[in-house]
Design a protein around this nucleic acid. Structure first.
Lengths: 201, 201
DNA sequence: CTGTTAACGCAAAGATCTGTGCGATAGCGT
DNA sequence: ACGCTATCGCACAGATCTTTGCGTTAACAG
């Protein structure tokens, strides 16, 4: 009954400029920096100290470390993975997983991936993550569409989204579970997915 | 320089029986129960109250919530997934992913999976997880060995461990990221992996 | 069965976190 | 420009966590 406040309450004119924005970016920046250093949870006073902000501001605006992290992850939409166009499906997929694996191999990427799954179990968090991955997969899907136009794939084959998941999920699995660098067997992975997709028959 | 204390220090005769064991199982039980209810982090005093134990005992034995969780997850080796033997690779894999997906669909299973990736970023945690998955995959590998003996698979095919990962990782990905119930398209998933493995050529 | 002592529970003190008034600053509409 | 007020920083108080000493209990060795 209070979650929609932001949309409904037009009588409250929010101040998105100057000072508030400075506080916000300082806090989100400090949170991301902390995540990159491996910290998985900071107390709000600690975070406030790092950001050079009063703790009370954090309590008022976010209320918890998790809320800050969710906000920071949403704001850092660097998560955008470029969709390559090399001329062949194999080349596209290789470039794509290369980017993702490289991302997950960096301290920052791994920290973000970890934070993305571990923070926010309340209502909205799942929805946010689902939307994020849906759009990302929807964008990446183009690689398969182009391959199909080129005749590299059977017209009615497996579900593209399942194939993408087959490609991306193990990379995240590795990064989250064992912390391995998944950049080793990328070509083999891609070939497995190509075989699954029915390419080269 | 102090991590090997347990092995080296034989002058300290630990007391693993009766009372200590009771405290331990009460605490680990309470922790698992809390995880199942969706709690991702409990304060040690809270946990102690649930377990009916003195908080100081928790501070002395474990020191942090994360340490308790790691211990609890290791102790609950119910994670053992039975390896089926139905006579065909497809049947085996279907039964296997069915078990895993069912597990991840339950509140308990999802909570455990979540806790498994999100707790413990320090040195030993990764090693523990890696060992866990290595042995699990090593056990499950039998399904492919049998299939190969039956001639369902090419003698020298793809890496079995990569194939297993291809099968299992997306299930965990779904459970962790979107919270979806992955039991829907299991047959399709299995067929994708079979195609990747080069079965039915 | 008896002695030794690891591990527990209790309790108190110190540290840290959390929440909330209040005055000051500065964004935004007029 | 000017006024209104959202948001900030500061400071203080209450709650909660964390640590440590000490007496008690009971596991293990002989």
């Amino acid at each position: 009954m209070s979650a929609l406040r932001e949309d409904v309450d037009r009588s409250v004119r929010r101040r998105t400029g100057g000072r508030s924005a400075a506080v916000r970016s300082a806090v989100l920046g400090a949170a991301l920096a902390a995540l990159e250093e491996g910290s998985t949870a900071l107390s709000l006073p600690d975070l406030a100290a790092r950001a050079g902000v009063a703790p009370s501001s954090l309590y008022r605006r976010w209320g918890s470390w998790e809320a800050v992290v969710v906000d920071a992850l949403l704001a850092s939409s660097e998560a955008a993975v470029p969709v390559p166009d090399t001329g062949t499906l194999r080349g596209d997929l290789l470039a794509y997983v290369g980017t993702v694996a490289g991302h997950l191999a960096s301290p920052r990427g791994r920290a973000l991936a970890r934070a993305a799954v571990s923070s926010g179990h309340h209502a909205g968090a799942h929805e946010v993550r689902r939307r994020f991955w849906t759009t990302r997969f929807e964008l990446a899907r183009v690689m398969f569409d182009r391959a199909r136009e080129r005749g590299e794939l059977p017209a009615s084959g497996a579900d593209d989204l399942l194939l993408l998941e087959l490609l991306v999920a193990p990379l995240h699995f590795r990064a989250l579970v064992t912390g391995d660098d998944a950049r080793a067997a990328l070509a083999e992975r891609v070939d497995l997915v190509l075989a699954a997709a029915g390419a080269g028959r």
